[in-house]
Amino acid sequence: MIDSVIRYSATITAGGLMLPEARKVAALLQTNPTQADWVKAICADNLLQKNTPATSTRQANLLRARFGTLPKAALKLIASGSQEAAAQLVFAACIKHSTLIADFMRSVVAGHVRRMDEAIARREWDIFLSECAARDPAVESWTASTRTKLFQVIVSMLVDARYLESNRTLKLRTPSLHPEVRALLKHHGEDALIDTLELRP
């Protein structure tokens, strides 16, 4: 059940799963960097290999905020675990960090799986946003380009996390949570997050 009082954010337009960058940021965070260390790594050393310090800072800060929602033990698996496990944990962080993504998973993606639908239709994003606007009127002010970008970012995440076959077909895949990811989240009491990742009602 989705709460009746919610505040949604469009900040995820700053980046999708960004797995290569996420691994680097997770490795950096494992060193418990000071703010000076963080700025040096992201801006001076250009850890993420971006064209401008502003882009590096924006993406690194978003990833750090996402990872702050997960148990600290997740950083090691993101930084050096298998690609599948790392991608699932980064996506788990996205769900924890963004109510918009979490509600889309529970309302749209899980609903499709329960009904055994083959694919997600683009129009369902518009319907979903209308429902979001009923809970948070600020959503009404999002421009058409922002709405389109949000859909593109979420679809990209779902493809990278292996919930969709491609961003062209939008065909659903059967989700399978990596054993290490499941064990880590279970150990830290993240049962609700596991349910969302496994598309349970």
Rank of each mutant, 00 (worst) to 15 (best):
R182T: 07
A144G: 10
D160R: 14
L164F: 04
V155E: 12
F151I: 06
V155P: 11
R147Y: 05
L150A: 06
L172Q: 02
A134M: 08
R182P: 04
S156L: 05
R147D: 06
R168I: 10
S166W: 00
D160G: 11
R147L: 06
Y163H: 15
R182A: 13
T146W: 01
C132F: 04
L172S: 06
P179H: 05
V181Y: 12
L150W: 00
S141V: 06
F151K: 14
V181E: 15
A138R: 00
E180D: 15
D160I: 11
S145H: 12
L150R: 01
L150H: 03
F151V: 10
Q152L: 13
W142K: 02
V155Q: 09
L184E: 10
K171H: 13
P179N: 05
D136V: 02
P179V: 08
Q152C: 11
K171I: 08
S141K: 07
P137L: 01
S176H: 09
T143I: 09
F151E: 13
K149C: 04
L184K: 12
K171E: 13
A134Q: 06
R173Y: 01
M157I: 13
L158E: 12
A138T: 00
P179M: 06
R182H: 15
T146H: 00
T169P: 09
D136L: 01
R135I: 02
D136P: 02
L164H: 05
T148F: 03
F151L: 08
V159F: 09
S145E: 15
S166A: 08
R162G: 08
T143M: 06
S145T: 14
E165V: 14
E131C: 04
V153Q: 08
S176N: 09
L172F: 00
T148S: 15
T146S: 05
L177V: 01
W142H: 00
T143L: 07
C132Y: 02
D136R: 02
L177E: 00
Y163V: 08
M157C: 15
L170H: 07
T169N: 14
T174S: 10
L172T: 03
R162V: 11
P175W: 05
V139N: 04
N167Q: 10
S176F: 09
K149V: 03
I154D: 08
R173N: 09
L177N: 03
A144L: 15
R168T: 14
T169K: 13
R135M: 01
R168Y: 07
L164M: 06
Q152D: 15
V181T: 13
R147N: 14
R182L: 12
D160V: 13
R182N: 11
V181F: 12
I154R: 06
L170W: 09
R147H: 09
A183C: 01
W142N: 02
T143Y: 05
V139M: 00
H178N: 13
V181R: 11
N167C: 06
T146C: 04
K171Q: 12
A161K: 13
P179R: 05
T148K: 09
V155M: 10
E165S: 12
H178R: 06
N167D: 12
R135Q: 02
S141A: 14
A144H: 14
A134E: 07
